[in-house]
Write a protein that binds this DNA or RNA. Structure first.
Lengths: 155, 155
DNA sequence: CCGCGATAGTCAACCCAGTTGACTACTTCT
DNA sequence: AGAAGTAGTCAACTGGGTTGACTATCGCGG
């Protein structure tokens, strides 16, 4: 192992790994007839399926302002993946929920993404892959006050 | 383990881990009197120390066009971290090399970054940390034709 | 039950890192 | 020598994101 190789910072590997996975994901989505998406779409869809989301919550999740989140949701709405409706219990709030088309996209995303992780596990094995996942969860929670930090990489 | 927790995609964890490390790094650099940097600075400094870099190579490394790389280098030059000089062996090329100030910044960056990885190893242990590093190297090389992909996260 | 601070969302202006496209200068291949 | 390819630059533009100001609504303490 060369001197340079021994020292590759994890931060750099994380950035590369994220970029690589997202690029591959979008490439394969494109092949299956779901072109022109942004990485944020998937994260929003996934979170919005778990529970109805407010704009503010989306901003926090992604690590951006509520205004930016609002623009993002608007573009997702235009593309037909989500819709915004007033919250009956709080007139200030508009709730973001998946449309049928959004559910279909998310299904494809999860299917393709599962293939990607499978590809990875064929290189390093399932055990190491799952070790990575649980180690990352542990570290991030420990070093970030118990909860997970925002998703969007700061560049 | 809840249903949601079991399924946290690695891509999301990588993004969070990168963001977290970079944010912490910049925070600590700021405390030590090195404010106002972009993540790319460190990657360029590190690569330029190993060997003289061309603008094109910087673009490839980071995953952006040579024009964008040129702008970046210009701002690093303005900040006094690098300088560009003509390549004696090829008059088309301008070579990017570290200034003394650039070397000093890189030293601090590496010092602080080492602290961050040490913090991580105190949560999951050195073995798991190094396993993560070598597994990521293996996977990225295997899934990217032998060499490492570009650094900048696509967002 | 009033009033005030806090919160959700929107609008508008702006910023700036990065892209696209066109160009010059130089090198390399044949 | 000529053609194809490569390094860098200039200028115009894009678009995701921020800042700041505003409205409407909620909820708590007095």
């Amino acid at each position: 192992m060369t001197r340079a190789e021994a020292a590759v910072p994890l931060a750099r590997l994380f950035a590369m790994a994220f970029r690589h996975l997202i690029d591959e994901l979008h490439e394969r989505l494109d092949e299956r007839g779901w072109p022109d998406h942004r990485p944020a779409f998937g994260f929003v869809l996934l979170a919005a399926r778990e529970q109805p989301l407010t704009g503010r919550a989306i901003g926090d999740l992604l690590g951006m302002t509520k205004q930016a989140a609002s623009k993002l949701v608007e573009s997702m709405e235009d593309a037909g993946y989500v819709r915004r409706r007033p919250d009956p219990s709080d007139a200030r709030v508009k709730v973001v929920a998946l449309t049928p088309r959004g559910h279909r996209l998310l299904d494809v995303v999860e299917e393709v993404y599962a293939e990607l992780e499978t590809d990875w596990s064929q290189v390093i094995g399932v055990e190491r892959l799952e070790a990575m996942r649980s180690d990352l969860l542990d570290v991030l929670r420990a070093r970030h006050g118990g909860d997970l930090p925002a998703v969007r990489p700061t560049w």
